[in-house]
Design a protein around this nucleic acid. Sequence first.
DNA 1: ACCATATAGGACTAAAGTTGTCCTCTATAG
DNA 2: CTATAGAGGACAACTTTAGTCCTATATGGT
Lengths: 158, 158
Amino acid sequence: MLRLSKLTDYGIVVSACLARSAMELLSASEVAARTGIAAPTVSKLLKGLGRSGLVVSERGAKGGYRLSRAAEDISIADVVDALEGPVALTECISAAGHCEQESHCDARANFELINAAILDALERVSVAQMVEGPQRQYVDLDVTGSMGRREGSMNESV
Amino acid sequence: MLRLSKLTDYGIVVSACLARSAMELLSASEVAARTGIAAPTVSKLLKGLGRSGLVVSERGAKGGYRLSRAAEDISIADVVDALEGPVALTECISAAGHCEQESHCDARANFELINAAILDALERVSVAQMVEGPQRQYVDLDVTGSMGRREGSMNESV
DNA sequence: ACCATATAGGACTAAAGTTGTCCTCTATAG
DNA sequence: CTATAGAGGACAACTTTAGTCCTATATGGT
């Protein structure tokens, strides 16, 4: 578990679809057709992404959606944030203090760190990269070189 | 969002509680009293942790639970895994292939990388550390110094 | 031997969140 | 002025999660 909601997952696919068409205006139904996701759902997602400013819309006939900025500048964290709100691994991170423990809760500070690490992982991948295919870059520079262990878990082979 | 279930969150607290008492045997009700979590819930969690081998139990009067190995050797990822199953950010990571896209899904490989990075973050913190309080080590090297970056995250100092 | 205490395991209920659909309103191109 | 397309919100079905309870089994102490 520890899973992204399906809607958010779709949201990333939808964003990637827009990224593929650069700055072209795509209607919600066009996106639905291309991604295979049900039209009303795509519509809902695009509205949500629009509210957060990740995509911009044009109404009326010939209207549609496009990304508000370069796909390289939109991270997965941005999309997740737009659709599910800020990443907060545990309740005590988002909601302050109604935790009976608090006093003897050394855990919290550590949770915040874990949370930050996860957020970092999500920020490090852009929508553009999702379109491009497996990211050598990411693998080489981040997971291997740093994000991971000191000796690099994933591909030492850098 | 992108949140751990509350039960898992409690599970970590329960594990930390056992860690605090070293190898002493604690009954479920004792743990409940110490953590402030409802007794039946604690009981349920301990059973779950027992099934995964993270804690060992002794039945009968004077029975109770204790960690099966040193708290240093149990990571948050272990606890999450025990209680919610393997970390899988998206469906396509755990369940193979019923995704209409698959063909033009460059996303998947990237999801796997993000997933690995998150898993890594969870593996890097032990239950023992949750008890010890804020991890200077981690803080200095990761959040402060870099958190993301190439310079070694949690304990470069290894 | 018996009883009190504890865990094992599973059934079950209630609450909450997630998904997905639909309807009405507004804006724009032709 | 009409067809198309987004905006916004209501809502119903479904799934998951959280928490409780009950019965069976094991063990220590009297």
